[in-house]
């Protein structure tokens, strides 16, 4: 979706400021929110792409004015309600009032923690041979899906070169909407700065994205 989350190339957000000796969390609720999202995801209540989609789908003014973990919480509440794991009145009251819906991978327990500290695997058997190889010139398609996509707006319609093939992986555009893994080849594609930002761009800069094959056409 063409949302405000797709920030690459936007102006006006100000300086980047690093907080010295930043704590891992700035408040206890941030830590609990992070853990709840990880736990419910691991229980199979949703996948990572769906959780990203829910955060992107927050109204633009809410997205831009909410802290990072507040976006996580708002997305989580919406997701758990939409998927039927909690009812709005339960969120409101802070107590279980309705029957439990069993999550696909079962409840998340203390013994499950170790396994989620290592990233999940996104590689999947390919559905077809790779169309592109390193060195191929490609164009990022000019597409504007209203649902989740990982093709940022700032590269759409632009020409780049395939640099790496990372294998066949879960296709987020499909997984996010519950339509299955639909594995696609994933490539690192490199763009010259002038191709993306015009003739005045810094000529020493190159930008790459990781692009799934359906985002690309031969050029």
């Amino acid at each position: 979706m063409n949302g405000v989350h797709d920030m690459g190339g936007m102006d006006g957000f100000g300086k980047v400021e690093i907080e010295p000796n930043e704590p891992v969390f700035h408040a206890e609720w941030e830590a609990r929110t992070m853990a709840l999202v990880r736990a419910m995801g691991a229980a199979g209540a949703f996948n990572i792409d769906t959780s990203r989609f829910y955060r992107e789908a927050l109204p633009p003014h809410v997205y831009l004015s909410s802290s990072y973990y507040k976006k996580w919480l708002l997305g989580l509440e919406d997701l758990l309600v939409d998927k039927g794991y909690v009812a709005p009145e339960e969120v409101e009251k802070g107590h279980a009032l309705k029957p439990t819906k069993a999550p696909p991978r079962g409840p998340f327990r203390r013994d499950d923690v170790e396994r989620i500290l290592v990233r999940g695997k996104f590689g999947r058997e390919p559905q077809a041979p790779a169309k592109f190889k390193p060195g191929d010139r490609v164009r990022a398609k000019n597409i504007h899906p209203a649902t989740h996509t990982r093709l940022p707006r700032y590269v759409r319609g632009h020409f780049g070169v395939v640099e790496l093939n990372h294998g066949s992986q879960v296709f987020p555009d499909s997984a996010a909407i519950g339509a299955g893994d639909d594995p696609q080849w994933l490539y690192t594609v490199v763009f010259e700065s002038a191709e993306l930002w015009g003739a005045d761009a810094d000529p020493t800069v190159k930008i790459s994205i990781d692009a799934f094959e359906p985002y690309l056409e031969a050029a």
Partner: peptide, 18 residues
């Protein structure tokens, strides 16, 4: 966040210790 955690633990989806 405490409210949501209470709902999720009461419903048995997650353990607070986890």
């Amino acid at each position: 966040v405490r409210a949501l955690e209470s709902v999720l633990t009461e419903k048995g989806y997650v353990e607070s210790a986890a």
